[in-house]
Nucleic acid binder design. Structure first.
Lengths: 130, 130
DNA sequence: CAACAGCTTCCCGCCGCTGGAAGGTCAAGC
DNA sequence: GCTTGACCTTCCAGCGGCGGGAAGCTGTTG
């Protein structure tokens, strides 16, 4: 299949597929006589794997690492577990940061009406917080 | 004061200050005879404002928008309120996405031991989820 | 007067794409 | 046969928000 069909099946932009190939994340596929890239069902699976791992928060280089391990015949799961643990900790940190930020935004929103006018500052809403 | 002192006072990298000037977010300061940038206390305030707004989730272009409005003598608060509302909605969306992701990661982690070995897939941990 | 910190400009790289330009290919319709 | 249009190719450049490093000043200290 050609790049557009592959991209459609997985729900990505053809540009993204070429990009993945460019950075060595996906192997270079066969080419048709026309020069068009020719993909197989295996490529669909590989690309799907990439997107799933990405959705789980892995970076492209981490995913690349996994695919490489796999190609060398090693089981990547230990590595994946470590990465996922790091993801989890990271996620918790980000979520609590966001919760604090959210509260700050809500307070700010609530305070909007009660704030005095002060033409001397950039924006009293932002500056006159406590 | 020179760029290093300004940067120290606000807690940013001097590079960042020059970058802000480069994209037009901060005005170009006076120069000393040596060519060094010469900042005032006003610049400290402006930079602090930028960082605070940024911490609240505003993009540099949104902050730029606010500073521009302010320079034209308009009160930017309406705009700021709209931006903050968008931020808040965005934040809620991201937090719930993260909560779902977190659950997925936890499930995945828990499932790690119970999964069968399957040398045919990239990583059974990632692929054999439901 | 030499060393060293700090400043200047410049350009490049990070991540994960996305857009656009300039051109080739292929199937359908007139 | 010829055009249109969708798709493909390569290459280059940019987004945001910086940070690193080179090559060269300036300015203070020992």
């Amino acid at each position: 299949m050609r790049i557009g069909e592959l991209a459609d099946q997985v729900g990505v932009n053809p540009k993204t597929v070429r990009y993945y190939e460019g950075i060595g994340l996906l192997p270079a596929p066969e080419r048709l006589a026309s020069g068009y890239r020719d993909y197989t069902d295996d490529d669909v699976e590989r690309l799907r794997f990439v997107r799933t791992a990405q959705r789980l928060g892995l970076s492209l280089s981490e995913i690349s690492e996994i695919l490489t391990l796999r190609e060398r015949g090693e089981r990547p799961c230990e590595y994946v577990l470590a990465v996922l643990d790091r993801q989890l900790a990271d996620l918790d940190r980000r979520v609590s940061e966001m919760a604090a930020l959210r509260q700050e935004l809500v307070d700010l929103r609530d305070a909007a009406d009660r704030l005095p006018s002060d033409p001397g500052c950039y924006c009293s809403l932002i500056e006159h917080r406590r």
